[in-house]
């Protein structure tokens, strides 16, 4: 449906915005390496079913997400490493990994390796942006392009919510993927005050600056 496709396109756009920023400005300043590494873990643990993906649409996106995220990690860890300031990126990701691991082991859809990793990736994705938001809070401002990246990334998960409602209403089975929905709503809520500042500042041509 339209919400789902727009969400996935927004997700892909966010990655291209981030790559564009890093390559054009030859800098990854303002970007949390920890958040990016968490996203790589998210894609790898979620797409373990890659060889058995029945839908060409999903298959292509999975390849795109894993490969572009690997490239981002390469750029941040190797090519533009000196522009990356670890002193600003101090969020304790152990807590996020622990949170996702505990929920994944306690409440998977089924007790299989793939399902536990899938649930882990969903919970981890819901909080993976926290090191990035924490970094923004520490520096107090961000380049416009970084704000656009975060806006596109947040829009992706926000659009999945009307997608789930649409699917619930239109599909005869009326099934709800509880883990995905609860984690998806949590993820969207974490973006809410970023969205507000983006709307009140960046969309009106001002610098992204925290009050």
């Amino acid at each position: 449906n339209l919400f789902r496709v727009a969400g996935d396109m927004s997700h892909l756009a966010s990655i291209f915005i981030l790559l564009h920023k890093i390559v054009q400005l030859k800098s990854c300043s303002g970007i949390s390496f920890k958040s990016q590494l968490l996203y790589l873990i998210v894609y790898i643990t979620r797409y373990l079913d890659l060889p058995w993906t029945p839908s060409p649409y999903n298959f292509i996106f999975k390849i795109l997400f894993i490969s572009s995220q690997l490239y981002i990690i390469y750029l941040m860890a190797r090519a533009y490493r000196p522009t990356n300031d670890p002193n600003l990126d101090t969020f304790r990701v152990e807590y996020l990994l622990g949170f996702a691991a505990v929920l994944a082991v306690l409440f998977p859809v089924r007790y299989t390796v793939l399902e536990i990793f899938w649930a882990f990736s969903i919970w981890l994705e819901s909080v993976a942006i926290l090191p990035q938001l924490f970094m923004l809070q520490r520096t107090g401002e961000a380049e416009a392009i970084t704000a656009h990246y975060l806006f596109a990334l947040g829009t992706y998960r926000a659009l999945y919510i009307p997608n789930w409602i649409y699917r619930y209403v239109t599909e005869p089975t009326h099934k709800i993927d509880t883990i995905a929905v609860v984690a998806g709503v949590l993820q969207t809520v974490l973006y809410s005050d970023f969205f507000w500042i983006y709307y009140t500042k960046v969309m009106k041509g001002e610098k992204f600056k925290l009050p």
Partner: peptide, 10 residues
């Protein structure tokens, strides 16, 4: 609809 892994979203 047949879904191998059961999760058809990204």
């Amino acid at each position: 609809k047949i879904m191998v892994g059961g999760h058809d979203e990204l």
